[in-house]
Design a protein around this nucleic acid. Structure first.
Length: 457
DNA sequence: GTAGGGTTAG
């Protein structure tokens, strides 16, 4: 009894450490436990598998499976479901299917969650038809679908551009006695907002109240973000005060939606007010929240404050992600410190982050803005991947520098590789050529652009 | 344990 109680305690401890990304500490606690005679059980190992899959990689998660075998503990359905989830999160569907085979061979029957996870994976990969096949399997075979099955299905349909179908499924299910939870409503509200159907989203909001549910901060922030995205700032701010009046407590998510939206429309002062409010509540911030705040400071030119937050992140044991670094690179560029930005980019690569197109684009644009176009071209040439941002920025700035012929060359190679370019960049080249004494070249370029467009259709 | 809202560039 004592031992079982201790193992349970060990598991609680390991789970909270894993949640805080402190995997090494979790491992130390397990080793210490063994020394004291507290043995880890299947739950301990399952917690580790999930954490390693999330924060390190599917291979590390899989190696835990071996370790548990060596410790004489047989993996169960949860061990495999965690691994399958880990593989699908990384877009490794083939790996998930292998894991399916492996578990069946070991005599562990997949449950509805194994299928749910797989379905979710297919949706995330943008393969709704495959997800649909899994869904049909769940319905037709002996696995009875769980409420989550339908939620995953509806969410996947919405995310893959089939919001109407999600809606049809929803109404069908209701006719068959399905009682939607708030999560289901939130999925639909989000789906409708994403396709700009604000009125329908509002109707669902009414339906939520009528069904006896109380919409939560998620419901409201989803609609709020939609208002801001559609530039309906007045209505957005109105909804915001409605939330405040009704006494909704903002969580980190809600705050960040609002702060992020306010920054986007240039209302940095208002965003800062929300930030002060957020800090006052003492809400634990995760890396995404920190990224939002760092972005706010960068947009406001307060880089010192941004660096303070970076220190705070480190002190809390959180890890910066590619967004954090990209936001910093953009902030440094915006402040005119391109040298610092380039240094940060090198640092980012050194830390093992993949070559990041957005960060490179920021640097290219930053170099252009301080007049170092040749350096920008050097960076451009070193880039493995380029997109319409890269080209638009360079073409614009070459024009600003009066180098219309180089701009024209770049413009064509952009269009010929099938990418779009800002209309204004295109116009700048054509007008530049025409009015700097090369009207015939402008005319030629125009027809070349036309041909490139036709070929890309 | 698995499902819903938030972060980057021209």
């Amino acid at each position: 009894m004592v031992r079982r109680l201790s193992t349970r305690l060990l598991n609680v401890c390991v789970a909270s450490l894993c949640k805080a990304h402190k995997l090494e500490t979790a491992e130390t606690v397990i080793i210490d436990g063994v020394r004291l005679g507290v043995l880890p059980d299947v739950v301990t190992y399952n917690t580790l598998i999930d954490a390693y899959c999330r924060f390190v990689g599917i291979d590390s998660g899989y190696s835990i499976l071996h370790r548990m075998g060596e410790a004489g503990i047989t993996p169960d359905i949860i061990s495999y479901n965690s691994l399958i989830a880990g593989a699908t999160r990384n877009g490794q569907i083939a790996r998930s299917l292998d894991l399916f085979d492996e578990m069946i061979q070991r005599g562990i029957a997949p449950d509805v969650w194994s299928y749910n996870t797989l379905m979710h994976g297919f949706f995330k990969l943008g393969k709704p038809d495959m997800a649909n096949r899994v869904f049909r399997d769940i319905i037709l075979c002996e696995h009875s679908p769980s409420a989550a099955t339908f939620n995953i299905m509806m969410n996947g349909l919405c995310k893959n551009g089939y919001t109407k179908n999600a809606f049809m499924l929803f109404r069908n299910l209701q006719r068959h006695g399905f009682v939607p939870k708030l999560v289901t409503y939130n999925i639909l509200v989000n789906g409708l907002c994403k396709i700009g159907r604000l009125e329908s989203a509002r109707r669902i909001l009414k339906e939520i109240w009528e069904s006896g549910h109380v919409p939560n901060a998620i419901t409201y922030t989803t609609i709020l973000k939609c208002f801001f995205r559609k530039k309906k700032f007045e209505e957005g701010l109105e909804l915001l005060s409605e939330m405040k009046c009704k006494g909704y407590t903002f969580d980190g998510f809600a705050y960040c939606t609002v702060i992020g939206a306010l920054i986007k429309i240039g209302k940095v002062k208002e965003a800062t007010e929300f930030m002060v409010d957020l800090r006052r509540t003492g809400t634990e911030l995760d890396i995404v929240s920190y990224n939002t705040l760092i972005n706010m400071y960068c947009k406001d030119g307060k880089l010192e404050e941004a660096y303070k937050l970076l220190d705070e992140i480190e002190k809390k044991g959180l890890e910066c992600d590619k967004y954090t670094h990209t936001i910093m690179i953009h902030g440094l560029c915006k402040a005119g410190n391109v040298e610092g930005a380039a240094q940060h980019l090198r640092y980012m690569n050194m830390m093992g982050f993949d070559s990041n197109l957005v960060a490179f684009n920021c640097l290219v644009d930053g170099l252009c803005k301080v007049g170092q176009i040749d350096d920008a071209m050097k960076v451009y040439k070193s880039m493995e991947v380029r997109d319409s941002f890269t080209y638009s920025s360079l073409v614009h700035n070459l024009c600003r520098d009066g180098r219309y012929r180089s701009a024209a060359k770049l413009l064509l190679s952009c269009l010929r590789s099938g990418m779009k370019i800002l209309k204004s960049a295109q116009r700048a080249v054509l007008l530049g050529l025409r009015y700097s004494g090369f009207p015939r070249e402008a005319k030629k370029l125009k027809s070349k652009i036309r041909i490139a467009r036709i070929l890309n259709y």
